[in-house]
Nucleic acid binder design. Structure first.
Lengths: 215, 215
DNA sequence: ATAAAAATACAACTTTGGAGGTATAGTGGC
DNA sequence: GCCACTATACCTCCAAAGTTGTATTTTTAT
């Protein structure tokens, strides 16, 4: 028997949060471990609790949905994210965001769509509300995002941390001091990063990191 | 006596182009050297004629205003650019674009604003339509853009070209082959680039290039 | 015509990065 | 308890980047 999925839900409308809780409580393989009513709370939760799936409202008052998702992914890269949006933000949710989220559901799509999204995620398939005019094919065509997504997800927290410091023009020995690591460890991480992302050098890495908002 | 400023104007509404021509012809220190009715023509003109000031409509049918400006700046980094927009695109024209343009004038501001913009440019001052809700101070606060802008303008065409190739993960010897240059020349250019932008290494360069849309 | 800027080229030297290994302790999942 | 993954650490070797100089040619501005 499977371990129940640990779920975080975040929405600044309390009523909605409660409704969502009710809907999800019908499933026994699901466990709601956090309810957050703003971006700050969500980030705190991410730092303290291991989350399998996060259901995030895009329009929260303290963070832009975009920034929030990037932040969350940097804390728990493996966490799967379902974006719940009021409206058809298909243009706002550019190809960049598509690298991070696993499902995009619009609220008026109703309960059924959310359940489908959860099932899709369980099978490692991306889900986009059929109510949206752009279909999954369009999204993938965008930049053969599917593949890139998989490579990004290979990165560990430590590796993401190091990428950020490289972008700040720090060299391996400076990074090792900053993180209280051996110089050799940092070199190993850099090597692994390049290998995972199939990149040739630091220039490529920093370009990639910018294009995929890893910084 | 000053050499007359060479001006390019680009707008996909022919009527507007003609009107603009009339307005500008009142000034004798100005010489209109190109009239373009789309992005493609503008780029062609930039490749063939030296332009002092380009007055560009943001909403052209073949290029997004943003991409076009980046492109033009890469051809003639020193050219000053006045953006003419139908609407108050202040959010669209994010801090990124502010690195490139020297004036932002909305069309309903009328002839007077354009003239003021031209005068400001002559004195190397940025001009933003007073009709816009964001003032110059806001824009500069954004990221102390003014300074960065000056450093970017120090870059030559060749240097910008090389930055792009570095971002493509090419090393100096590959770049030298591609551009039919000596390996040493490429190294010299890299050295000068880092010095001009006050950067420490390639990682910093590629990060900078991304943040300021040099690629 | 002349001065300034840009592009070109070279060399010696130091530091850093990247490739290819190996290895061990700790964590979390099943 | 076992396996996979992560993070840690070390080593060698070679390639590349970066530093500090000098210097010539070509283009552009005035």
């Amino acid at each position: 028997m499977k371990r129940p999925k640990k779920i975080l839900i975040a929405d600044d409308h309390k009523i909605f949060l409660e409704g969502l809780n009710l809907i999800l409580s019908e499933f026994n393989h699901i466990q709601i471990v956090a309810e957050c009513k703003n971006g700050k709370e969500t980030i705190e939760a991410f730092k303290n609790i291991k989350i399998d799936i996060a259901i995030i409202d895009l329009n929260m008052n303290d963070y832009s949905g975009f920034d929030l998702i990037i932040k969350l992914k940097s804390i728990q890269p493996k966490c799967k994210i379902i974006v719940l949006s009021m409206v058809d933000d298909s243009s706002t949710i550019s190809s960049l965001v598509n690298n991070y989220i696993n499902a995009y559901v619009i609220k008026y799509g109703g309960k059924q769509e959310l359940i489908e999204a959860l099932n899709a995620i369980d099978q490692d398939i991306k889900y986009i509300s059929p109510s949206l005019n752009l279909n999954q094919q369009n999204m993938e065509d965008d930049l053969s995002i599917r593949n890139v997504n998989h490579t990004i997800e290979k990165l560990t927290k430590r590796e993401l941390e190091i990428i950020k410091l490289i972008a700040l023009q720090m060299n391996s020995s400076q990074i090792s001091e900053k993180l209280f690591l051996s110089f050799y460890t940092v070199k190993t991480h850099r090597k692994n990063i390049l290998q995972k992302l199939e990149l040739k050098n630091t220039a490529g890495l920093i370009d990639f990191a910018n294009k995929h908002n890893l910084l």
